[in-house]
């Protein structure tokens, strides 16, 4: 079919792609693109591409992209002990955004978007102050346990990931509206899609 999504979605995809190719908070642009490429390959069942990336990061990207329900607290703790908690959280954000963009392209009958060239520079290594506490979750995200807060350890990744998710789904404010409409699509139809995707992924939350 080959259709275009709404302007706000295409703008967020553009921003996501630009951001992937920039130095992040804990990974360089080359590393971020390697994570993205690894996630893309894993998602379609291909072998990981030959990328210059720590093997633990490759393992994390592959699992989150292709088998998200296989994660466990012990698995995350092992990955975090090797990579660090903040780099792991940034990796989750990068994988998440690539999966969103690639899934949408595939559903719309489009080719996967080529990755841009990495931009030079060093990661900012910014730690949020105060650092979020860890309460019942596998990584620290603060006291409020909700999807928009999951990436709180890396505020830049959180903000950009949430922007893409909101553009594709709805704003957090709209979530309060059971009668919300996105064009011709009613909230009940939207949630039917959301529930069916989550069921197929065996996502309990």
């Amino acid at each position: 079919m080959g259709l275009e999504p709404r302007t706000d979605v295409t703008e967020e995809i553009e921003l996501t792609w630009r951001h992937l190719a920039e130095p992040g908070t804990w990974w360089t642009a080359t590393e971020r693109l390697a994570i993205a490429d690894t996630a893309r390959s894993a998602r379609v069942g291909s072998s990981p591409p030959p990328v210059a990336l720590d093997h633990v990061a490759v393992k994390a990207a592959v699992t989150i992209a292709a088998h998200p329900a296989r994660t466990t607290r012990r698995w995350v703790e092992a990955i975090v002990s090797a990579l660090g908690e903040e780099p792991y959280v940034e990796l989750v954000g990068v994988v998440t955004r690539v999966v969103v963009v690639d899934t949408l392209a595939r559903l719309l009958g489009l080719d996967p978007r080529p990755f841009p060239a990495p931009r030079p520079g060093e990661p900012s290594r910014v730690i949020p102050d105060p650092r979020p506490v860890q309460v019942r979750t596998w990584v620290a995200m603060g006291n409020v346990l909700s999807p928009p807060r999951t990436l709180s350890l890396v505020p830049d990744e959180k903000r950009r990931t949430n922007r893409l998710l909101q553009a594709c789904y709805m704003t957090w404010a709209s979530m309060e509206d059971p009668d919300f409409r996105r064009g011709e699509l009613h909230r009940t139809q939207i949630e039917l899609v959301a529930a069916a995707v989550s069921y197929a992924n065996e996502c309990f939350y």
Partner: peptide, 27 residues
């Protein structure tokens, strides 16, 4: 077509939501 494309966007978003939730242990 517009509703179908919007539904595709929602499906893609939940491919993402499922991952951030499962990778961070959100209970």
């Amino acid at each position: 077509e517009p509703a179908a494309v919007d539904a595709a966007c929602v499906a893609a978003a939940f491919e993402g939501f499922n991952r951030i939730v499962d990778a961070t242990g959100l209970p």
